[in-house]
Design a protein around this nucleic acid. Structure first.
Lengths: 235, 235
DNA sequence: TGTACATCAGTGAACGCGCGTTCACTGATGTAC
DNA sequence: TGTACATCAGTGAACGCGCGTTCACTGATGTAC
């Protein structure tokens, strides 16, 4: 029974998704969704709190699609965290170009401090990707900073692309920005001899961050001080 | 009389601008604007074609503010086209942060091929800035490509910033992206001896583009072929 | 197993609102002779 | 200079629509005894 309800919700979300893709966000009204799904308005209100709730779930649905694609594609990649950054960039941009209306809902509706709640998981994936690069000693800036830079540049490239007439879209811009930005936050694989101080400090820092939850043979204050030093070595 | 009309329009636009800044784009309805301006609805319709017309003029008003600020600030700068790129970046981001609702109207409402008409002038300013850098031999990629990259990166940085809670906004990300992107499209000042082939080819190309309107001692086909070669040398 | 009751998804219909827009009209300003 | 007319910015009032949302109710499903 609960299962049936979830299936019904799912079907309504799929209908709403279709409306969104075909007519943009303004085509998604509670009435239009209910009508297209073949249910009455109160039935819709039984499934979703209100219109904001519906839109939030629709955004979550978009992030689900996005993450599924991205996880599948990245699973095929060999174990090269920096190559994953390149792939991740292209997958992001490609998703935006294929689903512009979803992309606008997910990344384009910018209001100070009002990020769609479902965005967290996508953000977490990016953090993970950069965390892995840091652990491999391939980052030359702290992962948090790298995340911000990548996020800003990727969305900028995607929105610029979406704004162009489909015929005249030019992926060179995205590729150029991608190469520039990723090169600026990563280093070459550490030479076995080299004294690549910054990236090693960051690699240790990333490993520490992971290990802190399971336990580390240092007092909290000691660990905090150590991490501060590592940041200084990295800067 | 006509002067009076224009003053009245101007006043209505100022009122609409205030509504926009205070309540975002959804606060700008024809009725709200008319009421706030102390005029009746039909009077508003006598001044502007319809709501789209009003919004287009409001966007133009925003671009006017933006360009006035930018031109004034850049006029103070000494004659260094690359320094102007840095200044231009910061001015753009700063404008966006100070006027988020305007910025969203001007740069955030992305629909394929439907750029606000008033955006052209702002885009032209960016093209000019990069053209000057090219003429000074400071560009390592064609100006058109540099324009696209800068535009994408700048809007991405600005929108990311606008999306953050004002308290936790971090200008480091913008600065880092700015430095990376500008460094990637520019070169150091040409050494007097150096064989900086690419930037010199691009400098000549930029000068040619300007001169083509006034006349150049080459046939059209010759000039076209020459420019093609210059692009090849630059690539 | 059968009956009485409770739960709850869904229905048909409507509420009230704000929206963009337009109607018929007024009154002031300018123009022609 | 004075009168008759044309122009046109602006008024008061309303149209009609689509919207988000909720009302009172039905009928099916599940539960208790």
């Amino acid at each position: 029974m609960n299962e049936g309800r979830r299936a019904a919700r799912r079907q309504v979300l799929q209908v709403a998704a279709k409306l969104l893709e075909e007519g943009g966000s303004e085509a998604v009204s509670t009435r239009a969704v209910a009508a297209a799904a073949g249910i009455t308005a109160p039935a819709l209100y039984r499934m979703f709190d209100d219109k904001d709730g519906l839109l939030a779930e629709l955004a979550a649905y978009g992030f689900e699609m996005y993450l599924a694609e991205k996880r599948e594609a990245l699973a095929l990649t060999p174990d090269d965290p920096v190559a994953d950054l390149y792939r991740g960039w292209d997958l992001h941009v490609d998703f935006g170009v294929r689903h512009p209306a979803f992309y606008m809902l997910m990344y384009g509706t910018v209001q100070p401090g009002r990020r769609p709640p479902a965005a967290d998981e996508a953000h977490a994936l990016l953090v993970t990707l950069l965390g892995r690069a840091a652990e491999a000693g391939r980052l030359r800036v702290p992962a948090a900073q790298a995340t911000r830079v990548i996020h800003a540049a990727t969305t900028g490239a995607t929105l610029a692309l979406i704004g162009e007439e489909p015929a005249e879209r030019d992926l060179t811009t995205s590729a150029r920005l991608r190469d520039t930005v990723i090169a600026s936050i990563t280093t070459d694989p550490p030479a076995s001899s080299g004294s690549d101080l910054a990236s090693r400090a960051l690699a240790l820092d990333a490993a520490l961050e992971t290990a802190l939850t399971t336990g580390v043979p240092l007092r909290d204050t000691e660990a905090a001080l150590l991490r501060e030093w590592l940041q200084q070595l990295a800067g």
